[in-house]
Design a protein around this nucleic acid. Sequence first.
DNA 1: AGAATGATCCTCT
DNA 2: GAGGATCATTCTC
Length: 208
Amino acid sequence: MKTIKLKRSFYNRPTLDVARDLLGKILICQNDSVKLGGRLVELEAYIGEDDPACHACRGRTPRNEIMYGPPGFLYVYFTYGNHYMLNFVTEGKGFPAAVLIRGLEPLYSVETMKQNRGVEVLTKIASGPGKLAKALGVTTDQKGLDLTGNEIFVIDDKSSIGEIWCSSRIGIGDNGTDKLWRFYLKDSPHVSKMSKQVRESARLIIES
DNA sequence: AGAATGATCCTCT
DNA sequence: GAGGATCATTCTC
């Protein structure tokens, strides 16, 4: 089967569309000579300065600068003293928006990812944004990387992915929880844990 | 210059 | 289910 790398035009669209359409696609991370990656199963959208949960809500800073740039670039940041978060910049230059990568199903170099995480159980390798970054070995060193390049990129995939659900976003406190901007594959065991509140907000948006 | 603050995860009870 | 780990970024003085 021919693999097609997603082009910049894919990311240059409304962030909610990008987030939803990334579900089921394959993230590839080429580290040295090792190819790590897997199927995207959980994503969140962060859109513009008016989104109180978006890093751009307080305006342009050195950290979030990349979100104001053109789409199709990698935004990585560090939080809670422990964890790196992977985001894909979306929409046109000048408008700050990104998709947070929250979960993937390990497919390539699974053994290496197990070692990176120090766990054996498949569903614990990348079922959460911090775990995912660690499994792939991504840090702020990769911030600003071009997703149309050869180091980190996404390829299309036509596999059946089942139902797509959305819910409120996770871990953002009380601001912006009214928006159902988290997207995930209902049938995947590689989706991160959600609180009762998040679970109650969830709804089906695309049937299989 | 110093302090507060997380888009989390893990380890306990 | 509560709390500690652990530090870059940002805000405040």
